[in-house]
Write a protein that binds this DNA or RNA. Structure first.
Length: 572
RNA sequence: CGGGGCAUGGCGCAGUCUGGUAGCGCACCUGCUUUGGGAGCAGGGGGUCGUGGGUUCAAAUCCCGCUGCCCCGACCA
């Protein structure tokens, strides 16, 4: 492609409302343009990248034995009523009616449709296992779309659904998918981890997520350096306390703590370490209008996913707002504590082994010291509701865990019979009996991968595409073509050669000042750059740089460039 | 949905408090000079100041309603 034929608009300034680098760079490099909140147009270069990702995903899905199909984006409400999700899914599901007042939704996922297909198409166990997949636009009316295409409302996803007679067969396909996903992220050139995960709203038993590692990631993952243990913190169990609770040595005592609200403030004020205090969080209970208290050690962080799974606590976890706490307990949230609190106490295991600890006295500006369980407060339940922290023992006993931020780009689930049961998807088994099939489902966020790749591969100047995702692999920059005819003729020859050799080449034949051309080249991030200018062309030579290493230039003979490039470009 | 903020040319902003000619930088167009890291000079085009109402001789500016977007919390590829 010739840049003179493409209206590429890059931005010198960073758009004010773009929070994360990938969003900023995608806008600046002209890959995407926003239409409305969470809705983006994919401009020519952005689309090229997305298609690269799609192609690799498609190739590896095909290699794994999955078969591609395409389902409608718009789905009838009836199917969702059958699965029960029309009621469950909530406002994230975009619903609308057609001219006959029949209800539809724009598909956020396709379990219902594929299960409907399966129950019509699949009659015999001999047809199993099957793994159907599609690459398609989804819509989820996210409460808060943000970070550009990282969390857009409309996005492209590869979703696959497998059908099995039994769980052993599901296990096999699940493992095949895991391997296919590893091949995909390896080929894309991304640094990633796959982790044990919570299966969330989709349901089912076993589930793994694939995360691209990046500091801006919205998820926290923990992994062992000693073993292959890795998990989303959401579901990583915290270690049991090392020592049992010590006997009380102090009496319960009130202290004035004026204007001290947070654990840090109170600890500093009293001169006690945060781990010797307890924090009290008020959340909604399972019964409407009821409240319960979650108690954690002062230096620990609440794990909302684990907490929401506990009986008696509303799921999803819902914090009581400050006004409601004041009204019910007559105390600001900064001065709450378990002693004398008239609510069921769900106490984290490591808070439950404290003795002589510090907590709020349930009156503004007053705390207790020397608090002890049994004597001063009684847990309703002792449970695991905190995050596993960096440096703590790994749940598999292999040593300490490390923690890292990740962007979830893939998720695989063993669904079991949740949908097949509800929608009566059966086949005849070898005994001639009808049997409900077992399902798996496997998602990859195509458009999110594009953003994640930028988060992981950029510098001050702009994007640095991994070879496999680059919109083009080679950029020819023409400098001084208007003054020196040989620049253009040389460039044209090389451009032809590259195209004939199957190298994806972009030629910047715009009559720009060198500074502008280089700045844009850096921003757009094409990996291999060749500068054709009178300066080196006099000796029949060209200048080559890799985007990752702009300081290192190599001079190459013009007539040997093709071979040179072929050696540089790593096949994907 | 709750809380906070913003809305002025394609982008980034000033002007709003204290009502009176709509302004700056970038981008865009023309010409000349320049040409290896986002050029210089000269000229030029483009804005119902988000939107509807109100107050006023007069509204970007003051008042009320609506809409859109961004940020902080619970969701997820």
């Amino acid at each position: 492609m010739r840049l003179s034929r493409l209206p590429l608009t890059t931005l010198k300034e960073t758009p004010a409302d773009a929070e994360v680098v990938s969003h900023q760079l995608m806008l600046r490099a002209g890959l995407i343009r926003m239409l409305a909140a969470g809705l983006y147009s994919w401009m020519p270069f952005g689309l090229k990248v997305a298609r690269k990702v799609e192609t690799i995903v498609r190739e590896e899905m095909d290699r794994s034995g999955a078969v591609e199909l395409l389902m409608p984006a718009v789905q009838p409400a009836e199917l969702w009523h059958e699965s029960g999700r029309w009621e469950q899914y909530g406002p994230e599901l975009l619903r609308f009616a057609d001219r006959h007042e029949r209800e539809f939704c724009f598909g956020p996922t396709h379990e219902e449709v594929i299960t409907d297909i399966a129950r019509r198409e699949l009659k015999s166990y001999r047809q199993l296992p099957v793994n159907y997949y599609q690459i398609q636009t989804k819509f989820r009316d996210e409460i808060r779309p943000r970070f550009g295409v990282m969390r857009a409302r409309e996005f492209v996803m590869k979703d696959a659904y497998s059908f099995h007679l039994d769980s052993a067969s599901l296990d096999e396909t699940y493992e095949e998918m895991r391997l296919a996903y590893c091949r995909i992220f390896d080929r894309l050139g991304l640094e990633y981890r796959y982790v044990r995960a919570d299966s969330g709203a989709i349901g089912g038993a076993l589930s793994h997520e694939f995360h691209v590692l990046a500091d801006s990631g919205e998820d926290e993952i923990v992994y062992s350096e000693q073993s292959d243990y890795a998990a989303n913190v959401e579901q990583a169990p915290a270690p049991a306390p090392e020592s049992p609770r010590a006997e009380p040595t102090q009496e319960l005592q009130e202290v004035d703590t004026p204007d001290q609200r947070t654990i840090e403030e109170v600890s500093e004020f009293l001169g006690t370490p945060p781990k010797q205090s307890v924090k009290t969080l008020i959340v909604e209970g399972e019964e409407d209008g009821s409240l319960v208290a979650l108690i954690l050690r002062g230096d620990h962080r609440l794990n909302a996913v684990k907490a929401a799974k506990i009986e008696g606590i509303r799921s999803p976890l819902c914090f009581a707002d400050e006004a409601k706490v004041r009204e019910k307990l007559d105390c600001p949230v900064g001065s709450l504590g378990p002693a004398g609190l008239d609510l069921p106490l769900y106490v984290d295991a490591s808070a439950a082994v404290l003795s002589d600890f510090v907590c709020g006295a349930n009156r503004e500006g007053v705390h207790y010291i020397g608090v002890n369980w049994g004597r001063d407060a009684d847990p309703e339940q002792v449970c695991d509701i905190r995050n596993l922290e960096d440096g703590e023992p790994s749940p598999d006993g292999s040593g300490p865990v490390r923690s890292a931020r990740g962007i979830e780009v893939g998720h695989i689930f063993q669904l079991g019979d949740k949908y097949s049961q509800a929608m009566n998807c059966t086949v005849l088994n070898p005994d001639g009996k009808e049997q409900v099939v077992t399902m798996g489902c496997y998602g990859i966020g195509i458009t999110r991968i594009v953003a994640a790749a930028i988060e992981q591969n950029h510098d001050e100047q702009g994007i640095i595409w991994p070879d496999a995702m680059a919109p083009f692999s080679v950029l020819l920059c023409l400098i001084g073509a208007d003054r020196d005819g040989t620049v253009r003729t040389t460039a044209e020859t090389l451009y032809q050669q590259c195209q004939e050799a199957g190298i994806e080449v972009l030629m910047d034949d715009r009559d720009l000042r060198p500074g502008v051309m280089f700045a844009e080249a850096d921003l757009v991030g094409i990996p291999h750059r060749v500068v054709i200018s009178p300066r080196t062309l006099e000796q029949g030579r060209l200048e080559y740089r890799h985007r990752r290493n702009l300081d290192e230039a190599e001079e190459v003979a013009a007539d040997g460039l093709l071979e040179f490039l072929q050696a540089k470009i790593t096949p994907s």
